[in-house]
Amino acid sequence: MPPSETPSAETPQGGAGQPQIVFDQVVKRFGDLTVLDHLDFSVEPGERVTLIGPSGSGKTTILRLLMTLEKVTEGRIDVAGEPFSHMRRGNHLVPASESYLRRRRRSIGMVFQQFNLFPNMTVRKNVIEAPVHVLGLSKGEANERAEELLDLVGLGDKIDAHPTQLSGGQQQRVAIARALAMRPDILLLDEVTSALDPELVAGVLDVLRQVAETTDITMLCVTHEMAFARDVSHRVLMFDKGQIAEEGPPEQIFEDPREDRTKSFLRSVLDNGF
């Protein structure tokens, strides 16, 4: 659906300290259902932000908008100081075309809840496919990169295996390597441990901790793993009904939440053994 009003063409002030991601009055509706309701927030470069909140509160939609899997209904999104959901035409902003999106989303990677590895390719192929075909790397360079990343996620010995031969946790670690192989500036993590058996969760989270410690990739993370969110993120956003109910550093959100909605949400999550 095209935006009902064309946002102004102003961009955030450039220069140092410029936010990496800006949501400006973003509305997302599916039919009559409003998932995001005039949402404003921004993320700094290198910042790691965790999105929490009850299901249906719009967290995943934010990631899907950034990955261009969905289009905004109203408002606009900027990435790296340039319009992202829209593009410039003269003095106006118009909804971004497919080719514009293709150029802009190159800096963004995503890891899915269900891994979404390609079953027709080996682990190696899964990881090198996009670097070869999108970034134009040579096979040799891509392979080198794949080997390095698979070592990082602890699956160097599985490089020639088929996705179906791996456990869920291993598949998810391959998916992380696959996303990192594109050297993204921004990494979107959509409930990456929700589909895993409990005993496999730790391995995946360890990999992500390592990525957080050793790189300066901006990370947006939707998760129910509160301990992980506390360890890794700089900031936590609590969502409810398509808006930010509360935000702050993890210590404050988890130990001293101010909003009742946050308190009851945290209580329900902890009661469920997360």
Partner: peptide, 13 residues
């Protein structure tokens, strides 16, 4: 559909 979404995330044409 998730396979198609994965190709979008990897920016394949």
């Amino acid at each position: 559909k998730t396979q198609v979404e994965a190709t979008v995330a990897l920016n394949l044409s």
